[in-house]
């Protein structure tokens, strides 16, 4: 148990050390609507819709587009070298718009959430949600003022990247 925790912290530290920070304030035309699984251009769509600032970090394995909304929720979109968004993570006082953020994978999330509710009728509706599907893994947790989570497409994660880095 402790080993796992230590390993995760090291992974996070390495990512930060490797990161070269490039600030970007690009406002490009609206591209594809989908984000997760979509092209990097969809990040710009999200940025525009969220009226947010964006910062890009790269570490050789992928780039992280960090979108900071004026209302405090930070969304990170993980883009592979071939320009695809393979994972997203969020953190902040309000949940992000999942329809926009998950794009084509929203339906998978919605169905899994519905099944979780049906199977766990007695669990609070603000209890953490886990989605484990072949095409989508998602963890969503928190409470009012403090939400966080991650979603990714397992088959799209670049080789050598640990899903734990999507955060």
């Amino acid at each position: 148990m402790e080993v796992k925790i230590r390993r995760r912290r090291q992974a996070a530290t390495q990512m930060i050390l490797l990161a070269g920070i490039v600030l970007s304030s690009l406002f490009l035309p609206i591209g594809a609507a989908a984000t997760l699984g979509g092209n990097v251009t969809s990040v710009e769509t999200d940025q525009q819709q969220m009226k947010a600032k964006r910062a890009v970090q790269s570490n050789g394995k992928y780039s992280v587009h960090e979108i900071t909304t004026p209302y405090g929720t930070v969304v990170r979109e993980y883009v592979s070298p071939d320009g695809k968004v393979f994972g997203v993570a969020w953190r902040g006082p309000f949940l992000p718009d999942f329809q926009q953020l998950l794009g084509n994978y929203y339906a998978t999330f919605a169905q899994a959430a519905q099944q979780a509710r049906a199977a766990q009728a007695r669990r609070s509706r603000n209890a953490p949600l886990t989605v484990e599907q072949p095409e989508l893994v998602m963890h969503s947790a928190g409470h009012a003022r403090a939400y966080a989570g991650q979603a990714y497409v397992p088959g799209m994660i670049p080789q050598g990247v640990d899903a734990q880095e999507i955060r």
Binding site: I5, R8, R91, T130, E132, H139, A141, Q150, A163, Q164
Partner: peptide, 10 residues
């Protein structure tokens, strides 16, 4: 599920 843990913070 697996992986069970996201991160300690989350």
């Amino acid at each position: 599920g697996t992986p069970n843990s996201v991160t300690q913070a989350e």
